[in-house]
């Protein structure tokens, strides 16, 4: 193959940038980012937290779900600059320790609630938040499915995810 003379190439774009400071999984972070950078891309490519996945970039699939100031959000429908000053939690911040799974993560594993795993972090963020928001969560079929609507899964048919929500509740209530 003929080789062309290499062009001088910048490492990054010439976009206007802005400095942001925020907390990610409890750690303070200050970075200069392009003003148009999506929060999802910031987490993934600037911070290396690649557990937040990008599945549609228009707010339907839920793969990019993170928590912003204690409430779930689509990180594809949020600019990194909007998160200036915010507290962000991602899937990497869910497990209590490197060798211990969060009960929701444990339940997903036990119940075969994941296959390809691409949507899984988004689901786990939604389910963790569901339990955090509801002291006495409604574990009826319709209520769980309603809480899960907003996250698409193409592999599991959702049934084992519903099961995992109930199992996570058992684990968290110490019922085995």
């Amino acid at each position: 193959m003929t080789r062309s003379i290499r062009k001088v190439l910048a490492k990054e774009s010439s976009d206007p940038r802005r400095e942001i400071s925020l907390s990610v999984n409890g750690e303070a972070v200050t970075r200069s980012v392009s003003t148009r950078l999506l929060l999802a891309d910031f987490l993934r490519h600037e911070l290396g937290l690649t557990g937040t996945h990008v599945g549609c970039e228009h707010g339907v699939c839920g793969c990019c779900t993170v928590s912003i100031d204690g409430a779930t959000a689509r990180s594809c429908l949020t600019l990194a600059v909007q998160a200036d000053g915010a507290e962000i939690r991602t899937i990497e911040g869910v497990a209590p320790a490197p060798d211990i799974l969060h009960p929701v993560q444990q339940a997903f594993h036990e119940c075969h609630a994941l296959q390809c795993g691409f949507c899984t972090p988004g689901f786990i963020m939604s389910v963790v938040s569901y339990f955090e928001e509801n002291e006495n969560p409604d574990l009826g079929e319709d209520a769980i499915r309603d809480a899960l609507s907003g996250n698409l899964c193409r592999c599991t048919g959702y049934q084992n995810i519903v099961k995992a929500v109930r199992r996570a509740h058992e684990l968290m209530s110490g019922e085995a």
Binding site: G59, G62, T65, I68, A71, T72, A73, R74, L77, T78, S126, A147, S149, G150
Partner: peptide, 9 residues
């Protein structure tokens, strides 16, 4: 209106 995650923002 949409889903909880959207109403959060």
């Amino acid at each position: 209106v949409a889903h909880t995650v959207v109403r959060n923002r």
